[in-house]
C-alpha cells in the first residue's frame, strides 16, 4: 500500500521498502479535453551535490540527454501528448550506482512552449509523482499535486535524496516562473 504525501512531506524509501535498489520515478498528468494547442509536458531530473547545484551539465537528465554519465539515471523518453493512463514519463534510477557525491535527485516537469501557447499547470489535471520499486513494481510513495499547481510553467514535483545513509523522498510541489531554462539555471546548468 503506497503512502500518499502532501506538499512538503517526506518518507524514507529505504525503511519503507528494505533492500530497495532500483526505483522508477513516474510522473503523470492529464490534459484538457477542450480545444486549443496540445500540452507537451516534459519531465527532467537534476542530479545535484550538497550545494544544490549540478556538477556539470551532464547531470541534467532530460529529453535531449536521456542517460547520466554513470548510467545510474535513465529517462525512458519523451511523451508528447500526455494521453493514456498511468505514468506519462518515467525515470529509472539504480540507487546503488549513484555517485557518492550526488546528494539529491530533483524531478521537475515543465510545460514545453508554455508562454506562446498560453499554458500553465493550473490547466493540467491530476498531476502526480510516484516512486515505484523497479524490481517488484511495488509503489512506495505518491504525491498528488493537483491543487498545489496553478500559474507555474515549471515545477519541481519531488526529490529523492540521501539522509544518514538512507534514501528518502520529499513531496516538493515548488513552482518556477519561466519554464525549463530558468529552472535549469537554478540548479546550476549552463543554458
Amino acid at each position: 500500500m503506497a503512502i500518499s504525501l502532501n506538499k512538503g512531506g517526506n518518507l524514507s524509501l529505504s525503511k519503507s521498502d528494505p533492500g530497495l535498489k532500483k526505483i522508477s520515478v513516474g510522473l503523470g498528468w492529464d490534459v484538457r479535453s477542450t480545444e486549443g494547442a496540445d500540452f507537451d509536458l516534459d519531465a527532467s531530473c537534476f542530479m545535484v551535490g550538497e550545494t544544490g547545484k549540478v556538477r556539470s551539465d551532464a547531470d541534467f537528465i532530460f529529453y535531449n540527454q536521456l542517460k547520466s554519465a554513470d548510467g545510474s539515471v535513465e529517462h525512458t523518453g519523451d511523451n508528447l501528448t500526455g494521453e493514456g493512463e498511468g505514468d506519462d514519463e518515467s525515470v529509472l534510477i539504480d540507487l546503488t550506482r549513484v555517485s557518492p557525491d550526488i546528494f539529491k535527485l530533483a524531478f521537475a516537469v515543465t510545460i514545453h512552449d508554455a508562454q506562446t501557447r498560453g499554458q500553465n499547470f493550473g490547466q493540467v489535471q491530476s498531476a502526480f509523482i510516484r516512486v515505484v520499486n523497479a524490481e517488484t513494481s511495488n509503489e512506495i510513495v505518491r504525491y498528488d499535486l493537483s491543487e498545489d499547481a496553478s500559474v507555474e510553467t515549471a515545477m519541481v514535483f519531488g526529490e529523492v535524496y540521501r539522509n544518514a545513509g538512507e534514501w528518502k523522498f520529499r513531496a516538493v510541489g515548488q513552482g518556477f516562473a519561466g519554464g525549463l531554462g530558468p529552472l535549469a539555471r537554478n540548479f546550476g546548468v549552463n543554458i
Partner: peptide, 8 residues
C-alpha cells in the same frame, strides 16, 4: 486571477 490560476 489569470487563466489557470486556482485559489481556496
Amino acid at each position: 486571477l489569470t487563466r489557470g490560476q486556482k485559489t481556496k
